[in-house]
Nucleic acid binder design. Structure first.
Length: 603
RNA sequence: GCCACCAUAGCUCAGCUGGUAGAGCAGUCGAUUCGUAAUCGACAGGUCGUCGGGUCGUAGCCGACUGGUGGCUCCA
C-alpha cells in the first residue's frame, strides 16, 4: 500500500496563507509609517511575523489599528502578483529600503538567503506585489488576499528582534500574528493557548506548592517547597538506582573553588561570561562552580590509574551556579542555581563507543518511564569561526571526536540530526530536544565528549603497553537538571504525577469526626508502609475535602465513614474519579506499594 | 543583556477619565457532623513592588530601580 506522505509545511496552503498575511500586515504597517523600513516576514509554527525598523515604538493600540486595516485589505481581493527581476531592477525598486538592499546583495552573490544562511545555488530574484505593497520575496503566496479569511487571523504580540538574529545588530520591532484557514481553526488554536496556560509549570508549581521564587532571594534562584523536595528526592532515588546498576561511583565536591582550577580547566577563558563574578578571600579569588567537571578531574587524577580501572564513572548531585542573563531566565526551565544529575565517565578510546551508547540507552529508559514520545537527538558540532573563541583551538581533535560520536550513533542505529556551532567548548555533544506537553522546546538530557580538558589536567592512565595515555571524558546529565526536569514533568503530566512521584500519595478523609481516630490510624499505617499519606481531620464536609484533594491532584483518596469503620475497611476514590468501595486496607496498601515500586504510570 | 508590556491582601482578581482601597478563596474563631469536586456566620488581613518627581490632593500621571511576562540573543 502506498504510504501517505505528509505534506511539507512549506508546500501547504496554510504556509501560503500565513506568508501572505505577513505581506498584508507589512502593507498596513507601511501605510501607518511611510518612512518605516521593512525587513523579513516569514511564516512560522502557528503563524507568521514581520520585522520592521520604525521611527517609533509600536503600542498595543497600533496593533489593533493594523489588524483592522488588514481586514479591509484582505476583503478588497487584491491579487498577489509575482515578477522575476534582475538584481539592479530590485535595487531600484527597493532603493529606500536598506535591509532589502542588503538582502539583494546576498541573493546576487548567491551566498545568503534572507536569514543569512548560505545557499547552494544562486537564486532567482523575485518580487511579489499586492495592492500598494511590493516585497522582495521568493514566495509562494496565495492567489489573492481574499484567500486570507478576515476572521481567521489575529495579531498576537509585539516583540524585539535583532536584525538577522545577531545581538550586535539593530533591534527591530517584530509583530507576531497567527493565521488559519478558517475561523474555527483560529478559535481552536486560541483555545489551545488557553489550555496551555493551565499546565504551565509556573502556574502548577504555585498551585501544587512545588517551588517559589522570592525577590529577596534573587532571580533564577528557586526555593523548593516540601512537595518539590519530594519530587527531587524521588528523581534522585531513580537516578541513583540506575547509576548503581550501571557501575557509577558517587562523589561530593565543594561549591567554591580557587580561580586556578577554572583557569586550568579552560572555563575562565571560554566560559567566564556564564559564571558568577569571583569573590576574594585572603587575597585569593574564588569562583562558584558552573560545572562539576574540574573537581571530578581532580578526583580522577588523585591516584594512578591503570587501563584495568577504566572506565571510571564519577557521579555527583552537586548544585551549580551559572550567571544566565536576566532576560533568559524562565521559570524552572532556565535558572541560575541548578542541581545537576551529573557524572563524568573516564574511558579509553576503545571503550568510548560502548560508554557513550550506554548513556544513550539510559536516556531511552527514561523516555519510556516518563512516556516521552517526541524527542530529537541533536549532534552539536563546533564551528570553524568559533575555534579559539567559543571552542578549544584544536580542529583536528574536533573533527576526530565528532566522527567518533557520529560512528557510535550510526552503529547503534540511533537517529539524530546535526547542528553546527552548538557544541560545548570542550567537545561535541548529543543533546536531546524535547517538547513539553504545551509545545515548548528545550534540551533536556545531554551527553558530551571532552577531548580537551583531561589533557589540561594531565589526566592519564597506564595502557596495556605500559605507556601513559590520556583518557576521554564523557560528561552526561540524563535527567538534565532537577529544576528543568521537574518543570518539564509538571507540564508533561499537567501536575497529575504517577503515584511514585506524587508528593502526597494518599489523603485519608473522614466523613464525620467520629472516624477521626480510625482515619489517623490508617494514615499512620500507610506511612509505616512507606506511602506518603496525610489525614484530613478538618470539620469540613466530605465533598469539600475531596475537592481539595482533587485540586492538589492527590492520586488516592481513602474515604472512611461509619460503614467502613465498622467493617474495618476503606473506600477508595482515585484521582481519575473512579471509586471502589469496601476494600480491606491491606489490599489497598498492596496496590499502592505495587504501583510505587514499579513506578507505574497508571494509577 | 536588548525591545515591549505588567506589578493592588498569602492566592486569584475588581477599583471609570487622580478626590487617601474592595470581592472570592486561603487564615483565625464559632456553629455544623454531613457519603465521593466548595456548609454557614463572624473576625482579621494591604504605608497599592521600591525610590524620586509632578499635583491642593493620586493605587491610577512622569522617571529610575527591582521583579515578572512575551519575544530576540543564549542555554541544562
Amino acid at each position: 500500500m502506498a504510504q501517505q506522505v505528509q505534506e511539507r509545511y512549506e508546500d501547504s496552503k496554510l504556509y501560503k496563507i500565513r506568508h501572505s498575511a505577513a505581506h498584508v500586515m507589512a502593507q498596513a504597517v507601511m501605510e501607518m509609517f511611510p518612512d518605516g523600513k521593512v525587513t523579513i516576514g516569514p511564516p512560522v509554527d502557528n503563524g507568521f511575523y514581520y520585522d520592521f525598523d520604525l521611527p517609533r515604538n509600536l503600542t498595543p493600540e497600533d496593533l489593533e489599528q493594523i489588524e483592522k486595516r488588514m481586514r479591509q485589505i484582505v476583503q478588497s481581493k487584491h491579487e498577489f502578483v509575482r515578477k522575476v527581476v534582475s538584481a539592479d531592477e530590485a535595487r531600484e525598486i527597493f532603493k529606500d529600503q536598506p535591509y532589502k538592499l542588503e538582502l539583494i546583495d546576498g541573493l546576487e552573490k548567491g551566498g545568503l538567503d534572507e536569514y543569512g544562511n548560505p545557499l547552494n545555488e544562486k537564486p532567482e530574484i523575485s518580487i511579489y506585489q499586492q495592492d500598494t505593497f511590493t516585497d522582495l520575496c521568493r514566495g509562494p503566496h496565495v492567489e489573492s488576499t481574499k484567500d486570507i479569511k478576515q476572521d481567521a487571523f489575529k495579531l498576537m504580540t509585539i516583540a524585539g528582534a535583532y536584525w538577522r538574529g545577531d545581538e550586535k545588530n539593530k533591534m527591530l520591532q517584530r509583530i507576531y500574528g497567527t493565521a488559519w484557514e478558517s475561523k474555527d481553526q483560529l478559535k481552536e488554536y486560541l483555545n489551545q493557548l488557553e489550555e496551555a496556560k493551565k499546565r504551565d509549570h509556573r502556574k502548577l508549581g504555585k498551585e501544587l506548592e512545588i517551588f517559589i521564587f522570592d525577590d529577596e532571594v534573587g532571580p533564577g534562584l528557586p526555593l523548593w517547597l516540601p512537595n518539590g523536595g519530594i519530587l527531587i528526592e524521588e528523581l534522585e532515588k531513580l537516578a541513583k538506582e540506575m547509576e548503581d546498576k550501571a557501575g557509577y561511583d558517587r562523589v561530593k565536591t565543594p561549591i567554591l573553588t580557587k580561580e586556578d582550577l577554572f583557569l586550568r580547566s579552560g572555563h575562565l577563558p571560554y566560559y567566564a561570561e556564564s559564571m558568577y563574578a569571583p569573590m576574594e578571600i585572603e587575597g585569593v579569588k574564588y569562583y562558584v562552580k558552573p560545572m562539576n567537571c574540574p573537581m571530578h578531574h581532580k578526583i580522577f587524577g588523585s591516584k594512578g590509574r591503570s587501563y584495568r580501572d577504566l572506565p571510571v564513572r564519577l557521579a555527583e548531585y552537586g548544585t551549580c551556579y551559572r550567571y544566565e542573563k536576566s532576560g533568559e531566565l524562565f521559570g524552572l526551565m532556565r535558572v541560575r542555581s541548578m542541581q545537576m544529575n551529573d557524572a563524568h565517565i573516564y574511558c579509553s578510546e576503545e571503550q568510548f563507543e560502548q560508554e557513550f551508547m550506554g548513556v544513550v540507552a539510559l536516556y531511552r529508559k527514561y523516555f519510556e518511564l516518563f512516556g516521552i514520545e517526541k524527542y530529537v537527538m541533536r549532534l552539536s558540532l563546533h564551528s570553524k569561526q568559533g575555534l579559539g573563541k567559543k571552542y578549544v583551538d584544536n580542529e583536528r581533535l574536533w573533527l576526530k571526536t565528532e566522527e567518533m560520536v557520529r560512528r557510535a550513533m550510526d552503529n547503534g542505529g540511533v537517529p539524530y540530526v546535526e547542528r553546527e556551532d552548538e557544541a560545548a567548548f570542550y567537545g561535541p555533544k548529543i543533546d536531546v530536544q524535547v517538547w513539553s506537553a504545551i509545545g515548548r522546546e528545550f534540551s533536556l538530557m545531554t551527553n558530551q565528549v571532552d577531548f580537551a580538558v583531561p589533557e589540561r589536567f594531565d589526566l592519564k592512565f597506564t595502557n596495556k603497553e605500559g605507556a601513559d595515555e590520556i583518557p576521554l571524558c564523557i560528561h552526561r546529565a540524563p535527567l538534565s537538571t532537577h529544576e528543568r526536569m521537574v518543570g518539564f514533568l509538571l507540564e508533561h503530566y499537567a501536575g497529575n504525577f504517577p503515584v511514585w512521584l506524587s508528593p502526597e500519595q494518599v489523603r485519608v478523609i473522614s466523613i464525620t469526626d467520629a472516624q477521626n481516630e480510625y482515619v489517623e490510624n490508617i494514615a499512620k499505617q500507610l506511612r509505616e508502609s512507606g506511602i506518603r499519606a496525610h489525614a484530613d481531620l478538618s470539620s469540613q464536609r466530605m465533598n469539600a475535602k475531596i475537592r481539595q484533594a482533587q485540586l492538589m491532584k492527590v492520586p488516592y483518596m481513602i474515604v472512611v465513614g461509619d460503614n467502613e469503620m465498622q467493617a474495618g475497611q476503606v473506600s477508595l476514590r482515585v484521582r481519575d474519579g473512579s471509586q471502589q468501595n469496601n476494600i480491606p486496607l491491606a489490599e489497598f496498601i498492596a496496590r499502592a506499594k505495587d504501583k510505587i515500586s514499579r513506578r507505574a504510570s497508571e494509577l
